[in-house]
């Protein structure tokens, strides 16, 4: 029992990332009808927003330490971040420590901007082109984006820690009445899951309870009629693209402490996210979220020792296997609508 709960928990963080990326992909696909292969790159850019912010905050200058010298007799210097000068040492240290969560505030405007520029600058011209062209041009864009990041940040993963309050693990088992040390779970993964849940909730609430969201949903159902009613649906869809980019970016920001970001993390996630979207059903937002968590949890179950002993190698292929089975038995995915990408 405890092993099952542990595997579910383990699956949640990866599932959250899949769900967030797949949600963004589906938002773009559902509104604009564009298959965005550059979405993984947006996830990666979000992660590097966190890296950038933590570097910016860490910018420092040298200060001589009074009364101490190094072994050559020169005055000893130490690096003091500018932020210490501005906010005092205690606050400054706290800000440096909390760089990753703070990067959320930094990433939202950046990602929305990136998304809007991408839509207006490139993707707008591809609405009338076949899906294959959209896949190819965004694939090219993803290559370009990741090479640009590689040029500036290098090819190696950049470790960026979570705030010290959330490093380490806690005993989740005790909370729900198991013996101590049966279910140990890192704090940050729980934070990531909660964060993902909040974002997913916010996106759904935005679509469900605001006028803007209502218009967007109407546009997803029948773009032409909404346009005929005199509503500038293109502008709203552009904004939705920005929001989808922000969702992917935020998923990236918070993923940084779990896995140090490198330039090809986007591509690694992209392939799986596409599988997630297809399993969930193209164009279905709840389907994307559901499939994301489902596949994340399945993947973690498949990595259990007992399962691997039973079917060797299953942990490597479970997602693809599930995708193939679902695509062949439920052609529209778990929750796909009729008439979406049927051709």
């Amino acid at each position: 029992m405890d092993a099952i709960i542990l595997q579910i928990l383990n699956g949640l963080d990866k599932g959250s990332a899949y769900a967030l990326i797949a949600l963004g992909l589906t938002l773009i696909f559902g509104t604009l009808g564009v298959v965005n292969f550059a979405h993984g790159a947006l996830f990666m850019i979000g992660a590097f927003c966190a890296v950038t912010l933590s570097r910016l905050i860490g910018l420092s200058h040298k200060v001589e330490v009074e009364g101490e010298t190094d072994f050559l007799g020169n005055p000893l210097t130490k690096d003091v971040p500018y932020i210490y000068d501005w906010f005092g040492e205690a606050t400054g240290a706290a800000i440096v420590d909390w760089a990753v969560p703070l990067a959320i505030l930094f990433a939202i405007p950046v990602m929305i901007l990136v998304g809007v520029v991408m839509e207006r600058g490139l993707i707008k011209h591809f609405y009338k082109r076949p899906h294959a062209d959209q896949i190819l041009v965004t694939f090219g864009l993803a290559i370009v984006l990741q090479e640009v990041i590689k040029y500036f940040y290098g090819a190696n993963p950049i470790p960026t820690p979570a705030p010290s309050a959330f490093t380490g693990s806690f005993d989740f088992g005790v909370l729900i009445g198991f013996d101590a040390n049966t279910i140990i779970y890192p704090y940050w993964r729980l934070v990531y899951f909660a964060f993902a849940a909040v974002i997913i909730g916010a996106v759904f609430a935005f679509l469900q309870f605001t006028t803007f969201g209502m218009v967007v949903r109407a546009g997803m159902a029948d773009r032409e009629t909404v346009g005929l009613l005199g509503i500038n649906i293109d502008k709203r869809f552009t904004i939705m693209f920005g929001i989808a980019a922000a969702v992917a970016g935020l998923a990236g920001v918070m993923y940084v402490p779990i896995n140090p970001p490198n330039y090809h993390m986007g591509m690694d996630f992209l392939v799986l996210s596409f599988v997630v979207v297809v399993v969930g059903g193209m164009g279905s937002l709840p389907g994307a979220v559901l499939a994301g968590f489902l596949l994340g949890i399945l993947e973690s179950f498949a990595s259990m020792r007992e399962v691997i002993d039973l079917i060797p190698g299953i942990n490597q292929i479970i997602i693809y296997l599930v995708a193939i089975i679902i695509l062949l038995t439920r052609p529209r995915g778990l929750m796909g609508r009729k008439g979406v990408m049927e051709d």
Binding site: V35, L321, A323
Partner: peptide, 15 residues
Amino acid sequence: SGIYFSILTLAFAQM
């Protein structure tokens, strides 16, 4: 067909 075919072939190859 379409993107589903692409994903299926991708899934087989990755497997």
